[in-house]
Design a protein around this nucleic acid. Structure first.
Lengths: 91, 91
DNA sequence: ATTCTATTTAGAATTTTATCTAAATACATT
DNA sequence: AATGTATTTAGATAAAATTCTAAATAGAAT
């Protein structure tokens, strides 16, 4: 957790795609994997990076592990970025 | 230019620090370098990454190359991020 | 209890990124 | 023109990130 991990996590295109997928709601590791042409192990690695960054969290149910976005961390990043547009948050 | 480069550029702590420095206004490569314990060549490399990402631009004057933030690209990133907090830009 | 399914972990291989030293450019000053 | 200062480029090395295969876990279902 913390800026460094979060920015690192966001720097990978696959991980950004995963976040976009999760916009629609929580999804199991397997479902997420179906959207990509990579092994489950690799998806698992990316999920672990996102989790380490605090960008997603998991909940287990039966055999599955579901992932979900953590919006508050996204907001921290936006806050950091807002220092560059003169504090003008948005209009 | 484009998201991938921009996120990659932002993922490095040194480059984020450079951006923070440049908040105060334009600065030459040398001045920027003085804030870090690295060779000029390395600073130059980081500047080139930021430039490639469109996050900064340069203007030459005499012997010097001055760098400056390009706010509009920062805004694009914020816009992309805003898809995750329900379009609630900021309040 | 055995087998099946979902997912992660470990270890190795590949690729990418960050850094340095040395050399090249470019312009300024003497 | 010769030297000096600021910066970049090239090439090498080291460190970090991504990916795979194979094995390990964990729980579900037979």
């Amino acid at each position: 957790m913390g800026f460094p991990e979060t920015f690192k996590a966001l720097s990978d295109p696959i991980r950004r795609e995963i976040l976009v997928l999760l916009r629609q709601g929580r999804m199991s590791a397997g479902e997420i994997g179906q959207h990509f042409d990579m092994t489950g192990a690799t998806i698992s690695y990316h999920l672990s990076q996102l989790k380490k960054a605090g960008l997603i969290f998991e909940t287990k149910y039966k055999n599955y592990i579901y992932y979900e976005i953590n919006v508050s961390v996204v907001e921290e990043i936006m806050l950091w970025l807002s220092q560059f547009n003169g504090g003008k948050k948005n209009e």
